[in-house]
């Protein structure tokens, strides 16, 4: 078949909602976009363990400590099956991790913000996981089969995390004056960065059109962001807290909430490496990897010895 015909068959499959599987023919750009997106998602899960891991030792009750440990461990699990999904496209986990450490590959910028108080564990769960879920629910229907299936599993756990985050804030919101203040402060700090998680405005985004045509994405950045805002405005009322945006008003014509201007200079600055924790997060990942090198080498050496001994036995 000619390339042209292959591309036609490929697009027809996508149009008919048939998943693309690892051994199917796909355009190079489709493969590359998926590797980039899935590995970025995997890195985000793994780097995302750090800001929350920061509070494991200081969680204020045994129940909260157990929940937090389980949650951070879930993120590691997500990372693991996302790396596996990306590997089906022909890039090794090792390569992807090298790209993360060299700065070639990105992860979600949200994790370059610091987790300063216990309330941040609630706000991250509610707002950050909440924003991530909207994206991941959409990705359960993405056209690449292994990635879609990974997201189905991720969504189940993430929605649990979001509920736990909200409940953590709920307890603070009903607590002492200090706890209430801690809760509002965390919401104030995480609100705008959470909105930035959906990426640049549609008018500024370069990847939208092709990704929509290939059904890698099914909703635009702005659509998802609006959906998130409409949801959060209702939920914050239950907490008895406020969102730090005085331009949030219901727009009867659009049937959506209008909101204030996002600080895109801050967004691009953090993406470029100027967030408070960019260096710290990457250094922590590199350190874990480098300090684990002798462990991985020993495991390989032992496996080889064991295999050789088995062979000798058989012979």
């Amino acid at each position: 078949m000619q390339i042209h015909d292959l591309e036609k068959t490929f697009q027809e499959k996508i149009d008919k909602e048939i998943k693309i599987e690892p051994k199917d023919w796909m355009p190079d750009a489709y493969r590359k976009t998926n590797v980039r997106q899935i590995s970025q998602h995997a890195h985000s899960e793994v780097v995302g363990m750090l800001p929350e891991g920061n509070w494991i030792s200081r969680a204020p009750s045994l129940k909260r400590k157990a929940i937090l440990i389980a949650k951070v461990q879930d993120e590691a699990g997500h990372g693991l099956y996302l790396y596996s999904a990306a590997e089906t496209l022909g890039t090794s986990r090792e390569q992807m991790i090298d790209d993360l450490h060299s700065g070639k590959a990105k992860y979600s910028s949200i994790f370059n913000y610091p987790t300063l108080t216990w309330a941040d564990m609630g706000a991250v769960g509610w707002l950050v996981d909440g924003a991530a879920i909207l994206n991941q629910v959409m990705l359960c229907r993405t056209s690449y089969g292994p990635y879609a299936r990974a997201n189905v599993r991720i969504c189940k756990e993430e929605s649990f995390h979001q509920r736990q985050g909200f409940e953590t804030l709920m307890v603070l919101a009903n607590g002492t004056p200090e706890q209430k203040a801690m809760c509002q402060d965390a919401i104030n700090r995480w609100w705008w960065p959470a909105l930035m998680m959906f990426g640049p405005k549609d008018s500024e985004s370069t990847n939208n059109d092709q990704s929509m045509k290939w059904k890698i994405k099914r909703k635009t950045n702005d659509e998802l962001r609006q959906q998130f805002i409409d949801m959060a405005v209702q939920q914050v009322k239950v907490l008895g807290m406020t969102l730090p945006d005085d331009k949030l008003v219901w727009n009867e014509d659009r049937k959506h909430y209008d909101f204030g201007e996002i600080n895109w200079d801050e967004f691009w600055s953090v993406v470029k490496g100027n967030g408070q924790c960019n260096k710290q997060r990457l250094d922590a990942r590199k350190k874990a990897h480098e300090e684990g090198a002798w462990v991985r080498e020993a495991a390989v050496a032992y496996a080889k010895k064991k295999a050789a001994r088995l062979l000798t036995k058989v012979a």
């Binding site: 045994l62 129940k63 461990q73 590691a76 350190k287 300090e291």
Partner: peptide, 29 residues
């Protein structure tokens, strides 16, 4: 053990030691 969470030598073992940590806190409670 909890201090290893996110810092293990390889992702699979990060998960394994954290599993043990979760068992331990369960016992403790």
């Amino acid at each position: 053990n909890g201090a290893w969470c996110g810092h293990g030598p390889i992702l699979e073992q990060d998960i394994a030691i954290t599993n043990i940590t979760l068992d331990l806190i369960g016992q403790s409670r």
